[in-house]
């Protein structure tokens, strides 16, 4: 179980997260929703160790991880795919994916096994291993980023707006990957602006507002909740 308790965190100009409490059910896909500025991406950054909380705790299976560095969090089995480009543009697709296994680089056999497994999951990696990552389209980059995050066989995967800027075909490919993760028992914490898509991929939903959790439940409960419509509208208003 991934648990955040009373988390306060921000970027120097006040706290974005203001006493956030959140429990992510193991082997679930949890979608974090909310208007712009609610702190959705900040939750992922706090979990992955890229942002240290000012107050509160983050724990995985009862063990505190909020004081660990990002590489240490990664070695605990939590991988993050951020919103913007995470690839190395002048490295090939294969090199990029292999870099995902940086922490197991000395276990060559395991590294190759993982690479084959990831290439099976993401056909692009098998088809164009030598292509420079900088030449890929947005959708292709996303697939490689997700593939790379699976190299350490993480138990928890943090996905920040995986559908952002993608065409419908790429979105269905990303959706298929997320469904595949759920089937293989991974815990996925997903931030998504596309509410309909996000909830359709998820088992659970969390609605955030003002740096706190406003609603938490199964995906069906969140979808059917009477307040959701108004919150969605709030998210769609300019500067909302």
């Amino acid at each position: 179980m991934l648990t955040l308790k009373d988390v306060h965190a921000g970027y120097g100009g006040g706290d974005v997260l203001q006493g956030l409490d959140l429990s992510v059910v193991p082997e679930s896909v949890t979608c974090v929703l909310g208007p712009n500025g609610a702190g959705k991406s900040t939750v992922l950054r706090v979990v992955s160790g890229l942002l240290k909380p000012r107050q509160g705790t983050v724990s995985l299976a009862g063990e505190r991880i909020d004081r660990l560095t990002a590489p240490q969090v990664l070695s605990k089995g939590i991988a993050q795919v951020p919103q913007t480009g995470a690839l190395f543009p002048r490295m090939s697709v294969r090199e990029n994916v292999l870099m995902g296994g940086y922490l197991i680089r000395r276990q060559r056999k395991l590294l190759e096994e993982r690479y084959s497994a990831v290439a099976d999951l993401v056909p692009l990696i098998a088809e164009r291993p030598g292509a420079p990552a900088g030449n890929l389209s947005g959708g292709q980059r996303r697939m490689v980023e997700i593939g790379r995050s699976l190299m350490l066989d993480p138990s928890v995967i943090l996905l920040d707006e995986p559908s952002l800027g993608l065409d419908p075909r790429s979105i269905s490919a990303v959706a298929a990957l997320i469904n595949g993760m759920r089937e293989r028992g991974k815990t996925v914490l997903l931030v998504e602006q596309n509410v309909r898509l996000g909830l359709s991929l998820s088992t659970h939903g969390v609605v955030m507002e003002g740096g706190r959790v406003r609603l938490h439940g199964t995906a069906e409960e969140i979808t059917d909740h009477p307040e959701i419509a108004s919150l969605y509208l709030g998210a769609l208003e300019p500067n909302g």
Binding site: T69, P71, L74, S75, G85, F88, R90, M91, E95, R105
Partner: peptide, 23 residues
């Protein structure tokens, strides 16, 4: 070498390098 890959990765994308566990 992995050391070299880590150096090139950091030069190309420092935040991406941090995400894969490069110090």
């Amino acid at each position: 070498t992995w050391t070299g890959r880590a150096i090139r990765a950091t030069a190309q994308n420092p935040s991406g390098a941090a995400l894969v566990g490069i110090s």
